[in-house]
């Protein structure tokens, strides 16, 4: 396996309060990695540093060994980092298919203004096929023409996943995909994610609250607490780690997070 993504010594503080302290994290190509930690551990801050929403005070973010720390959000996306959102972010007023179509067009860099002006901006057979494949994979085939406002939260999450898939990411950052879903929906989502990941072979960095989901989905796990990495390793070992149990299960009741 080759190292796909690496963050080294990432540090970030907000007006004196250290949110992240020398956090280093590695994801190999095609690997499923978890990042867990109680509320306020710095998961979201780390996530934002990786994606470019925040600039870390120190440390480097590497994709394929290249420093992407200075790139704006959309450039990182084009390099192959896809994401889903904790608080669902869909394009209001657009259908499910249009979500995928847009992502596909952006990835290919197709569709200039001029093409549009000459009336050649419509979707062709290739595009439709690619969208259909992903829709099928996610079981969204029946909903393709529906506006996203009509979807349930779980379906909305799947649309987010599908949209990210269309950008053909090599690394998918999933930000608390279980939030707002009940057990059953979470399991269904996890099953779909596993299937899709097996099919497409991208790496996943799963930032999660739901320990069960992390335990069942990931191969390796990192644990953050108060901005420090307190454990890392194969998921089963980490889950058994004493410090982790103390930091995580000791303070927060499992599954009751916001």
């Amino acid at each position: 396996m080759t190292t796909l993504f690496e963050a080294t010594g990432v540090r970030k503080s907000f007006s004196g309060i250290r949110a992240l302290e020398d956090v280093s994290l590695r994801v190999e190509a095609g690997e499923r990695v978890g990042l867990i930690g109680p509320n306020g551990a710095g998961k979201t801050t780390f996530f934002n540093c990786v994606l470019g929403m925040l600039r870390p005070d120190a440390g480097r973010v590497l994709l394929d060994g290249q420093d992407i720390g200075g790139l704006p959000v959309h450039r990182r996306a084009r390099r192959g980092i896809g994401r889903t959102f904790q608080r669902i972010e869909l394009f209001a007023d657009m259908t499910v298919r249009e979500h995928l179509l847009l992502a596909d067009r952006i990835r290919r860099g197709e569709g200039s203004l001029l093409r549009d002006l000459f009336g050649r901006g419509g979707s062709d057979a290739d595009e439709r096929r690619r969208c259909d494949e992903v829709l099928e994979l996610l079981g969204l085939g029946d909903l393709a023409a529906d506006p996203v406002e009509a979807l349930s939260l779980g379906q909305g999450r799947l649309v987010e996943v599908g949209r990210a898939l269309m950008t053909e990411p090599r690394l998918l950052l999933a930000d608390e995909p279980s939030s707002g879903l009940d057990r059953e929906e979470t399991d269904a989502l996890a099953a779909t994610l596993r299937e899709v990941q097996g099919d497409r072979g991208f790496a996943v960095l799963l930032v999660e609250h739901d320990v069960e989901l992390v335990a069942s989905f990931t191969e390796r796990t990192y644990v953050l607490d108060f901005g420090h990495l307190i454990a890392e390793g194969p998921t089963a070992e980490v889950m058994a780690d004493k410090r982790v149990r103390q930091a995580y299960f000791g303070d927060v009741e499992v599954g009751s997070g916001s």
Partner: peptide, 22 residues
């Protein structure tokens, strides 16, 4: 109805999400 419109509508719907797909 072309890509430009699709992109702009996406951006209108959610700037965050639009950025996340490039």
């Amino acid at each position: 109805e072309g890509t430009t419109g699709l992109t702009l509508r996406g951006l209108r719907g959610s700037e965050l999400a639009a950025e996340s797909i490039g």
